[in-house]
């Protein structure tokens, strides 16, 4: 199936969703009207809830099919357009153990990942996916009832690259914020680098001062600052065990098609850019320098 046909199919599916949304709204409104005519608050609430469940049921299934169609059919075509040697599996993601291996965040109570992309660029292996991590919180109300809810502490893209320098320990570079404290449970020191602007933007922690200066060269520092400007939200870097983890907390779910508007050129270009960035990072951070691989 070619690109234009796929776009056409997606647009048809999207229009069907819009119709179903209208039908859903109609069902809810009619139910509320009926409930209102009966004049009973209980009937009104009951009719409202039942109709809402039905409406969501009608729409949800179509939305899932539409999204899956986008990821199954259009995304491979977009990846082809980039010319990158890349595998894509939207049902999979960067594993929890790998993410935890970065030691950037605490262990989540709920972990979800999707849109896995992996490949090799100039001998540098990489992978990326959306990651959502949540923490379980229990609260008690005034009547002593227990309420459990989940709070998101990371939602965004997670990228893992081969790193070309060998060193022991860990180096973390975390975008500075008011709430950002010393990394919990890590035996690291705060490192002050010679770049004042970098030190204002990021907090650097390492097990060893020499390793931090060895890995964070002046050009890498410069390119990390540029990378930070490219991504809205917070960015975190972890250099550990021959790997570089880049966590972009932008509260965004990547590669999701729009529902209330058509897939246009702007959207397509955005998706392509989100794919191309994977190999641009290799070049920008000069991860392809193989002079250190023994």
């Amino acid at each position: 199936m070619n690109y234009n046909q796929t776009l056409e199919q997606l647009e048809n599916k999207r229009k069907q969703i819009m119709k179903k949304i209208q039908i859903g709204i109609g069902i809810v409104l009619v139910s509320l009207l009926v409930g209102f005519l009966f004049g009973d608050t209980q009937v009104l609430v009951f009719a409202g809830i039942i109709s809402l469940v039905i409406a969501v049921g009608i729409v949800a299934d179509s939305v899932t099919k539409y999204k899956n169609h986008f990821k199954n059919q259009l995304m491979p075509l977009l990846i082809n357009k980039t010319g990158m040697n890349l595998e894509y599996n939207y049902r999979d993601g960067v594993g929890k153990d790998t993410v935890m291996g970065s030691k950037l965040f605490k262990k989540p109570d709920r972990y979800h990942c999707e849109d896995l992309m992996y490949g090799t660029f100039e001998d540098v292996r990489f992978m990326s996916s959306d990651v959502h991590m949540q923490e379980r919180r229990v609260t008690h109300d005034s009547k002593g009832r227990r309420h459990v809810h989940y709070v998101t502490y990371f939602l965004g893209r997670w990228l893992v690259y081969d790193f070309n320098k060998e060193f022991n320990g860990i180096i973390q570079v975390r975008e500075a914020s008011f709430l950002e404290g010393h990394p919990w449970g890590l035996n690291v020191d705060k490192i002050t680098l010679e770049d004042v602007e970098f030190n204002k933007k990021f907090k650097t922690y390492a097990t060893n001062q020499h390793d931090a200066f060895y890995v964070l060269t002046p050009s890498l520092i410069l390119n990390m600052k540029k990378l930070e400007q490219r991504f809205p939200g917070k960015i975190y870097f972890s250099f550990i065990g021959s790997q570089l983890h880049i966590a972009i907390y932008n509260s965004k779910n990547s590669f999701e098609p729009p529902i209330f508007s058509s897939i246009d050129e702007n959207f397509i270009n955005e998706q392509i850019q989100d794919v191309i960035i994977l190999q641009e990072i290799v070049k920008e951070l000069r991860l392809n320098r193989d002079i250190f691989k023994k």
């Binding site: 320098k165 010679e194 020499h210 200066f213 060895y214 060269t217 250190f292």
Partner: peptide
Amino acid sequence: SDVEEHLQAARRVYNA
């Protein structure tokens, strides 16, 4: 090349 990188790092650590 690696030794050069280490020397540069050592120099920067010293100066810092």
